[in-house]
Amino acid sequence: MTREELVNLFIENASKVSAETVRVTTDAELNGALTAILADTKSVFCQQDTAKEKSVVIPPDKRIDDYTGASVCIEEVAGAIAETGSLVCSSQGGKPIQAGLLPGHHVAIVSAENIYEKLDEYFGALGDSPPTNITLETGPSRTADIELTLTIGVHGPGRLTVIVY
């Protein structure tokens, strides 16, 4: 499978689990994809640690440092699994992965080169000393605890946007 085929498979499967998906190839396209999201929100948490996070332009009046009060979290995640449409969030490198859980809208940037085809590929290579917390995130938070009626956005985000860059 070529890299582009892998990207397409991931995007297809992430869409199936109700994530909004965008494919970008430049910083300008990345910021273009974020324009509508940033216009609609009051407060954005973005650590701006990785190169791709640093290229995100956030209006200063909307930026907040406390993710517990943010409406949107924009972050680059560690990778993704094409087979299941899942994001791989990892605590490695000091990332507070709960920042992608508390706000109502999680915007995850995935580097195309960090997409794995199969679960086995990723977990088979993890070894015996993984980072403190690895979380696979597959679509927005959901419950069906009342009469099996599907409700999106319980404790975690009700909206998930995946930007493959």
């Binding site: 299941t84 993984p130 403190t132 917390n133 597959t138």
Partner: peptide, 19 residues
């Protein structure tokens, strides 16, 4: 196909970690 979240938790917060 998969639950929304699946977490693998290994030990406590290490130096330099935020989770």
């Amino acid at each position: 196909m998969l639950t929304t979240y699946m977490s693998v938790i290994t030990g406590t917060r290490k130096a330099g970690e935020s989770t």
